[in-house]
Amino acid sequence: MSAGRDVFILSNTTDELGGVTVWTRQMARLFQSNGHRVHIIGIHEAEPQRALPEPPDCPVTALYPAHPPTPWAPRTLRDHCDLAARRREAARAAAKRQAVGRLTNLFRTARPGAVLIVTQVWAMEWVREADTSGMPVVGMSHESYAYSRACHRYRWIRNNYASVDRWLVLTQEDADTWIGDGMNNVGFVPNALPRLPEVPSPRTEQVVASIGRFSDQKGIDLLLETWAQVAPRRPGWRLRLYGAGEDEQDLRAQCTRLGLDGSVQWMGRTGDVPGALAGSSVFVQSSRGEGFPLALMEAMASGVPCAAFDCAPGVREIVRDGEDGLLAPAGDTEALADRLLRLTGNPRMRDGMGERARVNVQRFAEPEVLGRWEELFALLER
């Protein structure tokens, strides 16, 4: 290993609540523990209500104080005559040149052997225009091939990541799929298990927990539909929803329509995930799409058996169906309700799966994942 490497980690934002920010801060800590110098860069700062409160223990730079404006181009004769819009676009372009210049200046501070890790493809819009000469660029995606393929990020990935030195996904299955789709610079490194609590959950509370952002991707609406099938048959059990997000008002209204207000608890954001899991006996994940979900690993590390939609290779890589958790076909609320009924109705199954989950998830321990990154750094330096 080349000690004392400079590692730049570039994301859409520096501090937005979510899996990418959690991953960034975790890896910054791990890289620093191995003697590297880390600088976290975001295209912009998150809105205050969506930001993680505690700053990381390394330099952090945001290129903009808020989300930059979207580029504008005239399409009609009337657009060409819109002087106000043309002035706004000129100001946007000038601000972008300034941001790119800041990025280049940061990269020029790097010592030989530096590496740039771009965690989200949108940020490549600035990286492409910056001077990265002499510094390998590693692009990443924290979602599955199928989820990228279904939205605009597929085109962005094809346009922006084909030319980077290495483009990383989270599982071998997704890497193989991207290779089959014509990307020839693909590798994979899984997410690292954030922590292993000293004491696992006792699994004595009649609580099913969900932890995640209240957005379409996380499928909380599907979870409420699922819980409507579970709650009448498990009258003593509660569903605790930890999180916040843009869909909360609609989700609360859905909860009331389904008659679930008596069994669903809205817990808000939590800064104490181990504490939330220690008070739970089952964990549920209802996402429409995922990458390599940290919340699922954290639940397993706490000895809490999981029921989840099999929505991505990362999910079935983490959960061994029938051994340390139960998977349901993606989007199938009846099947997910069946898995929850099995776990909530069988303490022996819960305990057995929870204990196996705590053991099995340790294959993603931080030293193992950090070692894979060090191997990649060494390879890129050749």
Rank of each mutant, 00 (worst) to 15 (best):
R111Y: 03
P59E: 03
A66Q: 14
T70E: 12
G42M: 01
P48T: 04
G113V: 05
C81S: 13
H67R: 15
H67T: 12
A46V: 05
P68I: 02
T61R: 12
G113I: 02
T109G: 13
Q49N: 04
P74A: 14
A99F: 07
R102Q: 15
G101V: 00
P71R: 04
R111F: 08
C58I: 06
A51I: 01
I43Y: 03
R97M: 07
P71I: 00
A95I: 04
V60M: 06
A114F: 00
A84N: 09
A85F: 02
P53L: 08
K96T: 11
A95Y: 00
H67P: 06
N105Q: 15
G42A: 04
C81E: 04
P53R: 10
T104K: 04
R108P: 03
A110T: 09
L103E: 03
C81W: 05
A110D: 03
R50T: 07
T104I: 09
P74M: 08
R86H: 13
A110M: 07
P55G: 05
R78Y: 07
D57I: 00
A90R: 14
L103A: 09
P65V: 01
Q49C: 01
H44N: 12
R78A: 15
P65M: 06
E47Q: 15
P69T: 05
L52G: 02
R50E: 12
V60K: 07
A66H: 14
T70V: 12
A93F: 01
R92N: 11
G101N: 11
R92F: 08
H44W: 12
R75S: 12
P48V: 00
D82M: 05
R88S: 02
P68T: 01
D79W: 07
N105K: 15
N105R: 15
R50D: 13
A93P: 03
R88W: 01
H67V: 12
R97A: 14
R78S: 12
G101S: 14
E47S: 14
A62G: 13
A93T: 10
E45A: 15
A114S: 12
H44V: 02
R88Y: 04
T61F: 01
R108L: 12
A46W: 06
R87V: 10
H80P: 00
L52M: 14
P56I: 01
R50Y: 13
P56R: 08
A114I: 07
H67I: 05
V60T: 14
T61G: 07
R86I: 04
R87K: 08
N105C: 11
A62C: 05
L63N: 11
A90F: 00
A114T: 06
R92W: 01
L83W: 05
H67D: 13
R88Q: 12
R92P: 00
T76D: 04
R108V: 01
A110H: 00
E89P: 02
R111H: 13
V100T: 10
W72M: 03
Q98G: 07
L63G: 06
L63H: 09
P53E: 08
R108Y: 02
A114P: 06
P68K: 02
E47V: 11
A99Y: 08
A95P: 08
L77G: 14
L63R: 11
A95L: 10
P69D: 10
L63A: 10
N105H: 15
H67G: 02
H67L: 11
E89A: 13
L106F: 04
R86G: 03
Q49L: 07
G42F: 00
I43N: 05
L52A: 12
T76Y: 08
T109Q: 15
L63E: 10
